[in-house]
Nucleic acid binder design. Structure first.
Lengths: 211, 211
DNA sequence: AAAGGTCTGGGCTGTCAAGCCCAGTTTGCG
DNA sequence: CGCAAACTGGGCTTGACAGCCCAGACCTTT
């Protein structure tokens, strides 16, 4: 069923995808048109049409690409599978370290909010990606419980939903306020709440970093 | 400077605004066009053009209208100025009581995410509204501190940013998952975190409602 | 009654974008 | 070599939409 693609074809398709993802992330889906995509990826209109016959197919591919990226990032060794509070703090630190990190929002979340009300059939794609995302947090919290770093009465599912919600909501507030503080407050607040379930410290005595 | 509007003119303008807000909330800005607006409000194209010369002016008015609505709602007696945990729990209960409440997202937040990347000049309008929104929470938490219901070392600004972020992010996750649970988890989780700063209870012994 | 705001219902134009087609060229695999 | 994919650089149609204009009717206040 997959139309035979040579190595070169895959490379071009991938180049289009990368630039499309970047453009759409920066300017939004509706403000990105074919001409911009052609120029950014350095391909002709025919090629764009060849690899992505419709805009919906391109957007779908971009969603999959961004989802894979964000999931791979969260699964990287950097956060040690979120098996400790330090892992979560490292994560929060990454997203609050640079001004640039919040100005275009979450690479997947902003895309989701923009098209969730349209008739594009992207629901399954998105739902699957966000499920996996929360699962990364949940699995980390479960592991923390196994290691005795988190109380047994903590609810990893609930906490993972709070963590991701705080990130998504914090990103939105930061974009609107053009200030990283709301994102910091949301992330470190959520993580401090997780800390209240740790046995090693009282949780109320040790607080997260900034200000 | 305001073009003289008689009572009738104001009524028509208001009717257009109401229907525009409803349509845009349900279908998004880009998927709402003049013809739908005309039919929904029962006015002719000339009138639409008369009261809102450009789409940007209409969107701006809708933002202001939705902002006023959501702020008035949060200031209503129902939540007793958020001067207690019960006020916050009542708030969370409202947004998680019905399936319908999350399916179109936050009336202001979804609008914000959709247009934050466009070149529409709506930044000040949005920033002001969200500032007031967090202030409602912050003022409530400050009042709780004054009343001795919240520890002095709690940071009302930080907590209010977490609360609103949890709501916005939870709304997005709920929309994507087509399930109210992520929103519930985010809201009640954030509120339980606030509870860890209350002196009356340990905070760890009493948890919020669902499941 | 006069005036000015309100309102209809249609038409018109310019613009922009998506999708599609094609003639011809280049590349690379078998 | 031969063939198929990759690729160029256009052009073309179609549709959608925002913005704009108008002739005339209606309503309300002065």
């Amino acid at each position: 069923m997959p139309p035979k693609l040579t190595g070169r074809g895959q490379a071009t398709r991938g180049r289009i995808l990368e630039h499309a993802a970047e453009l759409i992330y920066a300017k939004g889906v509706h403000a990105t048109n074919n001409e911009q995509l052609r120029r950014a990826a350095g391909v002709s209109g025919s090629q764009l049409n060849h690899y992505f016959p419709t805009k919906e197919s391109l957007v779908l591919a971009v969603i999959a690409w961004q989802a894979e990226r964000v999931l791979a990032f969260h699964r990287s060794a950097r956060f040690t599978s979120f098996d400790s509070l330090d892992g979560f703090r490292e994560w929060a630190k990454y997203y609050t370290a640079y001004e640039r990190s919040y100005q275009d929002g979450c690479s997947l979340g902003s895309l989701a909010s923009e098209i969730i009300k349209t008739d594009l059939d992207v629901h399954e794609e998105l739902a699957g990606a966000f499920d996996q995302w929360t699962d990364i947090f949940r699995d980390g919290l479960l592991q923390m419980q196994r290691l005795g770093r988190l109380d047994a009465d903590a609810d990893p599912t609930r906490l993972s939903n709070l963590l991701l919600s705080a990130y998504q909501g914090g990103m939105l507030l930061a974009q609107i306020a053009r200030d990283v503080v709301p994102l910091e407050d949301a992330l470190y607040g959520a993580i401090d709440y997780v800390q209240t379930f740790t046995t090693s410290t009282s949780g109320r005595d040790v607080r997260s970093a900034p200000v």
